[in-house]
Design a protein around this nucleic acid. Structure first.
Length: 592
RNA sequence: GCGCCGGUAGCUCAGCUGGAUAGAGCACCAGACUUCGAAUCUGGGGGUCAGGGGUUCGAAUCCCUUCCGGCGCGCCA
């Protein structure tokens, strides 16, 4: 690797240099994969640290400190490294020459919105399935969390170089949509003037089906009511599902959540062939489906337990706890059966990487689904299931009452309309997916540091504000982002020397590494935390200028320093916008 | 009873896939506005990483175990 190569990804570049230096010292057969180059926890240790000596010592047959000294000696010849220290048990601490950080900023300026984009995914196809809410009613806040998480994860994977398909599995088959149809049919009779009283137990009571009833009356008049259920049910069901999905799509659009594919469960059965039956037959042929008996469930109620021979999937052979039934006692398929066929379809459409985003209450379902994916793909596909935990809706610290029975509950749409999609998205992503989330309708719109959405967006707006003001000192400064970035090409970046400025440069250089780590772990929340930290350092540097005017970004009668610092601000603003885009949150130019 | 996910500062949470003296915000205390946006910033106190064992150069992180909380446990999706 040429010593002068632009630091596209400073940490990756340095890792390959360390590996190149270490390889001849430890012998050819030693595995270098555990070697990492990372920012040290304590900045006083230098710019980067590597564990190479400690990880390789055993295989190389050397003491960690001795190996570290040998590697360090070789690294001292590297033209971009200013200082190499060996510390503690064998850490090698690297301090880079300061011009390297300027070059990192130059990479940000040149690549703009593409800075941080990675090729790690190698255009591999990934299917991310999220939301998949039943089309039986409006989405609640919990669905929203899965939606936002899946959408941001898909953005992140695409940015990391994967070929991403965003998918929604529409549960338009099975008993629940028949219940939906019967509920809608009552609304239809109501629309015709009949008094239906209260909704019978077991049907959906919410008034969101009233428009479905009205639409049915408009298109069919009174004709449907004269038909037997076997005739009106498919008609009413199709209409109700279509209208529910329209609502869901609208609500997702309001959250800026999008999908490429809406995959119909019914299409598995009613398409050109019955894919559920076909899937089970092929699994029977391979011995993974058999007829047998199951031990009674532990801890559950045993009253309606009936020991019988049934069609079972041998998921225990692939890591599950018990084998799983594929047919109900009435002979129809279980949900799991069609879900196997669905994931088989994903595999047949070319996906070897599948990610499903589910609510935490489906956690018990993971092992069997992973077993199923192994079975239908011959072990070639992998399924990662991300569970999103509960959302507790609060208003100023007080729980918001949600009653299911009355059909009155706070919908996702109501929340989005009240606080805005940016607040919903950022707040839900500013937490690990598997941690319970308290969502406070009052706190998320507060304009204080306590509120991370605002804090990060304000950082972006403040940066833009600097550019507006800078036009006094730098009259020709373009307002348009890319044009402005180009104007900084010739900036004297060696003017950046304050510790705060250098720290910001290091932070910017970290972004590509962060993107890859977050994408690899399927953890978009890391982006949100990074942005918060970047904004925090930026705000701090800003305020330094209050006490120390020579550290302000705009210096009167010193266009050279001003341009260098504006270039830094450009880098910050670029990455704030980039990260916010990954999260699906706006980066406003002002927030007055 | 079994499985999954959690337990980190008074509170809400991070902790970069095993690294160096465990970090933020809130709250509390003390400070900075004739400012390029104070909707911001600076400093301070605060910890048995639930408890105990193990793996190794090194553990909040991996394994075992106990305790506590949430979720799930044919024929609902």
């Amino acid at each position: 690797m040429p010593a002068t190569s632009a630091p596209q990804h400073l940490f990756a570049t340095m890792l390959s240099r360390v590996s190149a230096v270490a390889a001849p010292l430890v012998g050819a057969n030693v595995d270098l994969s555990r070697v990492v180059v990372e920012p040290p926890r304590d900045a006083s240790h230098g710019d980067m640290a590597t564990n190479a000596a400690m990880v390789l010592a055993k295989d190389a047959g050397k003491k960690p400190r001795d190996l570290a000294e040998a590697i360090a000696a070789a690294l001292r010849a590297d033209p971009v490294i200013a200082k190499v220290d060996v510390a503690g048990p064998g850490f090698i601490n690297l301090t880079l020459k300061t011009h390297v950080w300027g070059e990192a900023l130059r990479a940000v300026l040149e690549q703009g919105a593409d800075y941080g984009r990675s090729t790690m995914g190698a255009k591999e196809k990934v299917n991310v399935e999220y939301v998949s809410a039943n089309p039986t009613g409006p989405m609640h806040v919990g669905h929203g969390r899965g939606a936002v998480f899946g959408d941001a994860l898909a953005n992140l994977l695409a940015f990391a170089g994967y070929d991403v398909t965003r998918e929604y599995y529409v549960n338009d088959a099975g008993a629940q949509v028949d219940v939906l149809a019967r509920s809608a049919f009552l609304r239809y009779r109501e629309a015709l003037g009949e008094n239906i009283g209260t909704m019978p137990e077991g049907l959906y009571p919410g008034d969101y089906l009233v428009p479905v009833g009205a639409a049915l009356m408009a298109s069919h008049g009174a004709a449907l009511g004269k038909k037997p259920e076997s005739e009106w049910l498919p008609i009413v069901r199709a209409k109700a599902i279509a209208m529910m999905m329209d609502t869901i799509r609208d609500d997702l659009a309001a959250l800026h959540v999008r999908h490429d594919v809406f995959f119909s469960e019914r299409s598995l059965i009613e398409g050109k062939s019955d894919q559920v039956t076909a899937t089970i037959k092929s699994l029977q042929a391979s011995g993974e489906v058999y007829e047998g008996r199951l031990p009674p469930p532990k801890g559950g109620n045993l009253e309606d337990w009936e020991d019988r021979e049934q069609t079972l999937f041998r998921s225990t052979a692939l890591g599950d706890d018990v084998d799983r039934p594929l047919k109900k006692s009435d002979g129809s398929y279980t949900y799991f059966a069609s879900d196997i066929a669905y994931h088989k379809s994903k595999f047949e459409r070319g996906f070897r990487n599948m990610i499903d985003v589910w609510g935490a209450d489906h956690g018990g379902y993971i092992k069997r689904m992973q077993a199923a994916v192994k079975a239908v793909s011959g072990g070639k596909a992998e399924l990662d299931v991300k569970l999103v935990q509960l959302v507790r809706l609060l208003r100023a610290g007080e729980p918001v009452k949600m009653s299911k029975r009355s059909g009155e509950f706070v919908t996702l749409r109501e929340v989005v309309d009240e606080v805005g999609k940016d607040a919903v998205r950022f707040d839900m992503l500013y937490r690990k997916n598997d941690a319970v989330l308290d969502f406070d309708l009052v706190k998320v719109i507060e304009k204080t540091r306590e509120n991370p959405v605002f804090y990060v967006q304000y950082g972006h707006a403040r940066g833009q504000s600097i550019f507006r003001n800078a036009r006094v000192e730098i009259p020709g400064l373009p307002l348009d982002g890319p044009a402005r970035a180009a104007a900084f090409k010739t900036a004297a970046l060696n003017r950046l020397g304050d510790e705060g400025e250098l720290s910001l440069l290091r932070k910017l250089a970290l972004y590509p590494r962060l993107v890859e780590a977050a994408a690899g772990a399927h953890e978009p929340h890391r982006v949100a935390f990074y942005l918060y930290e970047l904004a925090s350092e930026f705000h701090a540097q800003w305020t330094k200028g209050n006490d120390l005017p020579h550290l302000r970004f705009i210096i009167q009668n010193d266009p050279e320093t001003t341009m260098a610092r504006l270039a830094l601000v450009q880098g910050i603003v670029t990455i704030l916008a980039s990260g916010l885009a990954l999260l699906g949150v706006e980066a406003p130019d002002e927030m007055r």
